[in-house]
Amino acid sequence: MPPKTKTPWPKILLITAAVTGLLLTLVPSFLNWQGIIEPGPVNNIMLAGTIIWFSSAGFLFAKKKGS
């Protein structure tokens, strides 16, 4: 019987969070330019994206180096 491979859930979660952070950084300003969302919340969403990116990508790169 072949050995069970463990799904790397923490890594998947971190990558998902990092990509979400990048999307939240870029997409709102594009949608604002297109007139789809109001300019008000755009800067706050971008800041949230920034925080998510650095907390996830920073951890991801540190983890990759350690492994």
Binding site: T25, L26, P28, S29, F30, N32, W33, G35, P39, V42, M46, T50
Partner: peptide, 11 residues
């Protein structure tokens, strides 16, 4: 951020 800032300045 550079690209997003340009988008945000377009309007």
């Amino acid at each position: 951020i550079f690209v997003a800032a340009a988008f945000n300045s377009f309007p």
